[in-house]
């Protein structure tokens, strides 16, 4: 069957046999966007986090049929080298990644958190950013999340 959605601002249709195929594999193997990672396949680690309608979704456990007609954003659509998203900018400033494999998932989860909560406290971060990083870059990530909040224009408006 045919499933249509927007990905990174572009309309996209895919012909798929099984509409229950995880969105992760459609994104990675059919649309060749490899930034969204496979970590566990059970929504337990967050490496596959992307945005559906602005919400952070663990795409390994999200059937592609649910994406019909929706806006999907992956790490490739969040920002680029010329126009990094504030979260990416903060990640660069704090030199967060080590192996880097989980980082797109964390960046996407953080971007979704900041869109809802532009000035998260440490407790907000602990409760909402629950992905797994085996290199354990958590202390730098926490600093980078606060920095990204400072870099996000909307947070300044709310502060004033």
């Amino acid at each position: 069957m045919k499933i249509s959605f927007n990905i990174n601002g572009q309309p996209q249709s895919v012909e798929i046999e099984d509409p229950n195929t995880p969105l992760l594999w459609v994104v990675r193997d059919m649309l060749d966007l490899k930034g969204t990672k496979f970590g566990c396949g059970k929504a337990a680690c967050g490496a596959c986090t992307l945005h559906v309608e602005g919400e952070a979704v663990r795409s390994c456990s999200y059937a592609v049929k649910f994406a019909e007609g929706k806006n999907v954003v992956t790490i490739e659509g969040l920002g680029d080298r010329e126009n990094p998203h504030p979260v990416q900018q903060a990640w660069i400033e704090h030199v967060v990644p080590q192996c880097g494999y989980c980082q797109p998932g964390f960046i996407m989860a953080t971007a979704a958190l900041l869109a809802k909560n532009p000035n998260p406290t440490d407790e907000d971060i602990d409760n909402n950013i629950v992905n797994v990083c085996r290199c354990a870059t958590y202390t730098r990530m926490r600093k980078a999340i606060h920095r990204a909040a400072d870099l996000t224009p909307s947070s300044k408006v709310l502060n004033e």
Partner: peptide, 11 residues
């Protein structure tokens, strides 16, 4: 800064 920093931040 790490030489692989951008590659890892932009996926």
């Amino acid at each position: 800064p790490r030489v692989d920093l951008a590659a890892k931040v932009f996926g």
